[in-house]
Amino acid sequence: MDEQGQGSGTDVNEVRLVGRVSGEPTVRTLPSGDEVVTLRVVVSRTDGRPVDTIDLACWSARSRRAAQHLADGTRVEVEGSLRRRFYRTPGGAASRYEVEVRRLVRERTRVSTC
């Protein structure tokens, strides 16, 4: 580590998830006119513990189109970056983490042959 606590290599913020869509995707139009599609993916842990539910945000036209066609329970592969979003609530400032999606595809079904 260097003096600022940074590693000597390049920092990386990459997320890869494979899981099932939980619920229906939601399309929102922001005051700026931008659209975002949000959804959740449920992923199993490798340590045998309960599943994790991960929030996703699709900002690019390509990822929004892909997300809008997904139904509850659809198995997907996701690539993106972890982001922390800040917002205001009646109780004060709050934040949450979500994956900003770069690539979202239905997982291909594997066919086994004998």
Rank of each mutant, 00 (worst) to 15 (best):
D2Y: 03
D2I: 03
Q4W: 03
Q4V: 01
G5Y: 04
Q6W: 07
Q6N: 13
Q6A: 11
G7Y: 05
G7D: 09
S8W: 06
S8I: 09
S8T: 11
S8C: 08
G9F: 09
T10F: 02
N13Q: 12
N13M: 09
N13I: 07
V15D: 02
V15E: 01
R16I: 10
L17K: 05
L17G: 05
R20W: 00
R20E: 03
V21R: 06
V21Q: 08
S22L: 12
E24D: 14
E24P: 01
T26Q: 15
T26W: 06
V27N: 07
R28Q: 10
R28H: 09
T29A: 14
T29I: 13
L30V: 02
L30C: 02
S32D: 08
S32Y: 08
G33D: 04
G33W: 03
G33N: 06
G33L: 04
G33K: 09
D34Q: 15
D34A: 15
E35Q: 15
E35S: 14
V36D: 06
V36T: 05
V36R: 07
V36I: 13
V36E: 07
V37L: 06
V37Y: 02
L39I: 11
L39R: 06
V42H: 00
V43N: 03
V43D: 02
S44L: 02
D47W: 07
G48W: 08
R49N: 10
R49C: 00
P50A: 13
P50F: 02
P50N: 12
V51W: 00
T53R: 01
T53H: 01
I54M: 07
D55F: 10
D55K: 14
D55V: 08
C58V: 10
W59H: 08
W59F: 14
S60W: 03
S60T: 12
S60Q: 05
A61L: 02
R62S: 08
R64C: 04
R65I: 00
R65F: 02
R65H: 04
A67G: 05
A67D: 05
A67K: 03
Q68P: 01
Q68H: 11
Q68F: 06
Q68K: 14
H69K: 15
H69P: 00
L70H: 12
L70I: 08
A71I: 07
A71E: 15
D72T: 13
D72C: 12
D72H: 15
T74G: 04
T74C: 08
E77A: 14
E79T: 13
E79K: 13
S81Y: 01
L82M: 14
L82F: 08
R83W: 04
R84V: 10
R84H: 09
R85G: 05
F86H: 11
F86L: 10
F86A: 09
P90Q: 09
G91N: 04
G92D: 02
G92M: 09
A93P: 04
A94W: 08
S95R: 14
Y97N: 14
Y97V: 13
E100P: 02
V101K: 07
V101Q: 04
V101H: 04
R102Y: 05
R103L: 13
L104W: 02
V105A: 15
V105N: 12
R106T: 11
E107F: 08
E107H: 13
E107V: 08
R108P: 01
T109K: 12
R110C: 00
R110D: 03
V111C: 00
T113L: 12
T113N: 06
